[in-house]
């Protein structure tokens, strides 16, 4: 029996699952937007702008979810500053939740700036203050800010899995692959979100096709990492003999295998993207709840 079975569940439930999901999308979206921005074709610009917007909105939602989830939400700032010693910064480089808080904060800052820049470029900002800020973020600065947002997105997509690993909880701490898995899932769901939203911002068929082609690769990576993750759990895998194991199977079936098949068959891009999102959500749902649901006294009782 893994020693993780003696730890207590942190009650990370729906808000955190939603955060992991939204954060993954935002991170993945931001990464893809930055890559398109830096390396892509000019006609892919709408994809980039969509990505930055997804990132900005996602970052704000993420921050909100995280804050609401706190036992004492008004003390959210204690993660950034030492409450007894304000304004000395609060930062622990070895604690994912600490550097993650900073990550989310910076990601929010950069993605919102980039998004404002994009919106200013489109002329959609009417508030003078926002227009001033958005207008400032253009050209090379916009590219740099976007690039940073992209890198931070990569971090946001992946750190959540690392956060789970750096615990003593069953499943999460029983194998090292969760960060990689969440990262892959974040990128795949980010791409899927762009596939769904970018057409509204004027993205071309070609842009979407490229995104979709990349999503296929991301899904393959995700599947591969998932297999490695499950393999690394060893005996702990018996916890999947539960409702959440079924959810995971459904997630893999509908969220990875089905989209891959649809891509192979060149069927509806949007349909596949929706399934990818579903899969990403179910993956997090199953991973969190399968662990949360383990009650430690059952272990001691030999049950």
């Amino acid at each position: 029996m893994s020693d993780t079975f003696f730890s207590g569940a942190p009650h990370w439930a729906w808000l955190i699952i939603l955060y992991f999901f939204v954060g993954g999308i935002a991170g993945g979206g931001s990464l893809l937007a930055a890559i398109v921005d830096w390396f892509g074709a000019p006609e892919d610009r709408p994809v980039a702008r969509t990505g930055y917007n997804v990132a900005a909105v996602g970052a704000i939602i993420s921050g909100a979810l995280l804050t609401i989830d706190l036992g004492r939400p008004l003390r959210f700032w204690h993660m950034l500053f030492q409450s007894a010693n304000f304004p000395t910064l609060m930062f622990k480089g070895w604690s994912p939740i600490s550097f993650g808080a900073w990550g989310i904060f910076l990601f929010g800052l950069f993605s919102v700036l980039t998004a404002l820049g994009g919106m200013a470029e489109e002329g959609r900002l009417h508030n003078p203050a926002l227009r001033a800020v958005g207008g400032a973020v253009r050209g090379t600065l916009a590219k740099v800010v976007g690039g940073v947002a992209g890198l931070l997105g990569l971090f946001i997509a992946g750190y959540t899995g690392v956060l789970l690993s750096v615990t003593n909880r069953p499943i999460w701490a029983d194998g090292p692959w969760l960060g990689a898995l969440f990262l892959a899932s974040g990128v795949s769901t980010g791409a899927a979100t762009l596939i769904l939203l970018a057409p509204g911002r004027g993205a071309t068929e070609q842009s979407l096709a490229r995104l979709s082609a990349f999503d296929t690769k991301a899904l393959v990576v995700e599947l591969l990492v998932l297999v490695l993750f499950v393999a690394s759990l060893g005996a702990v895998n018996r916890v999947w003999l539960s409702f959440w194991g079924l959810v995971l199977l459904v997630g893999v079936g509908f969220g990875i295998l089905a989209p891959l098949r649809m891509h192979a068959q060149r069927r509806s891009l949007a349909g596949a993207a929706r399934l990818v999102l579903l899969g990403g959500f179910l993956l997090r749902l199953a991973t969190i709840f399968a662990s949360e649901g383990i009650e430690r006294y059952r272990v001691a009782a030999g049950m």
Partner: peptide
């Protein structure tokens, strides 16, 4: 493993 990742420091912590 803790030290393996660079920059594992705390600011004032």
């Amino acid at each position: 493993a803790g030290t393996a990742i660079g920059g594992l420091v705390g600011l004032g912590v």
